[in-house]
Design a protein around this nucleic acid. Structure first.
Length: 374
DNA sequence: AACACGGGGTT
DNA sequence: AACCCAGTGTT
């Protein structure tokens, strides 16, 4: 469960050396990242939430746009969820954006607009777990508290040659090595080491400031730590989407039916072209007509296929078939969605959408342009 | 403890 | 194609 006596002694014996070498390495190799320059607690918070399950290079531009539009916690709390989701579009794990927005309003309402400055206070906010609470506390507030993410877990598992370290053991190990004078720099350095040197498959041990402190390397197989569990096979689904068009007048641009997904669902709060999974034995048009009846209470005519989109989620893969459709009968109502609207292309661009539906919107734009040439 | 939750990068 | 993430919340 927790650290063994022998591991505890090993950590105590090499503490000063490990601290000094890691901090000195970090000073030389730290990347020039925007969130390292403006470290208000609010901005550290935004950066750390964006970095959950997401790589630095992906986050950088999102972070800059986000803090430009929402420079303060108050400005974020005052914004609409839709605008926050729009800035999050393409970043994934959208519950992070919903929780961040909810937490900002909570801080304004219950904490006088000031982010809590203790790990426990931070941990109580939505979207802040053990890792993020530790990261904000150490980086923004200088509190010597561990922040264990996947990188830190890997680094410490290798340092101690521990195949499957538990969270309490990891936190205790990191806590022993945090220098009281520089907890934030140490936290960042540990994560940066894992991200750039102590990589999962082929660690670059020759460049590592801890190479001669690493017990896994001593055993000759650093990449064998920590052990990984076998993955479950991921299923594949055929999914349909209806691009349902109507022309308010013969002269005007067409409008297309879009629906907002329920807030507690996957991709919650994002807009989509309605549709859904094809069941066994069902044709794609059959599936589409059934889904539109179930979700929106309308019968549709299914026309030509507009585009096909392949996409892989964490737990399944899909092939998404988008069809041009028209309304046959019924008025749309939200039977299984948050809201719906008939939107023109310009409005579609402004809606928060997942990557798959954004691709469909792109195909629609191309189709409409080719059609206007006729 | 197991699972759901996006998307992009690396090998 | 398989594997990896700068994790959190729910069950």
């Amino acid at each position: 469960m927790s650290l063994g006596a022998e591991q505890r002694a090993y950590l105590a014996q090499h503490r000063e050396e490990a601290q000094q070498r890691l901090l000195s390495w970090f000073e030389r190799h730290a990347r020039d990242l925007p969130w390292r320059r403006d470290r208000t607690p609010y901005r550290v918070w935004v950066a750390e939430v964006m970095l959950q399950q997401t790589q630095v290079d992906t986050v950088r531009d999102y972070y800059l746009h986000f803090v430009q539009r929402f420079p303060t916690l108050d400005s974020l709390a005052e914004a609409s969820l839709e605008e926050v989701l729009k800035l999050w579009e393409g970043l994934g794990y959208y519950s992070r954006a919903r929780a961040l927005h909810r937490a900002a309003r909570q801080v304004v309402r219950h904490h006088n607009g000031e982010l809590p400055n203790t790990p426990q206070g931070l941990r109580a906010l939505p979207g802040i777990g053990a890792y993020t609470a530790g990261a904000i506390a150490s980086i923004a507030f200088g509190i010597p508290t561990p922040a264990v993410d996947g990188n830190v877990r890997r680094v410490m598992a290798r340092t101690l040659a521990e195949p499957d370290p538990t969270p309490p053991a990891l936190e205790e190990a990191v806590r022993q090595w945090i220098p009281p004078a520089a907890p934030g720099a140490f936290t960042e350095a540990l994560m940066e080491l894992g991200a750039t040197i102590c990589s999962p498959r082929a660690p670059r041990c020759l460049l590592c400031p801890w190479h001669d402190l690493c017990r896994a390397r001593d055993l000759g197989e650093p990449e064998a730590f920590p052990v990984t569990k076998p993955r479950k096979a991921i299923p594949h689904y055929d999914v349909t989407a209806a691009v349902t068009l109507r022309w308010p007048s013969s002269e005007s641009a067409p409008e297309v039916l879009v629906a907002q997904r329920p807030l507690d669902a996957m991709l919650g709060g994002l807009w989509e072209f309605p549709g859904g999974k094809r069941e066994d034995g069902e044709t794609l048009p059959d599936a589409l007509r059934r889904e539109l009846m179930e979700e929106m209470g309308v019968a549709i005519n299914v026309g030509e296929q507009l585009t096909v989109v392949q996409h892989a989620y964490t737990h399944f893969r899909i092939t998404l078939y988008a069809f041009l459709c028209t309304l046959e009968s019924g008025e749309p109502t939200c039977l299984a969605c948050q809201a719906f609207q008939w939107a023109r292309l310009a409005q579609i661009h402004a809606l928060p959408m997942a990557v798959t539906d954004r691709r469909i919107a792109g195909a629609l734009e191309v189709w409409l342009e080719s059609r206007s040439d006729l």
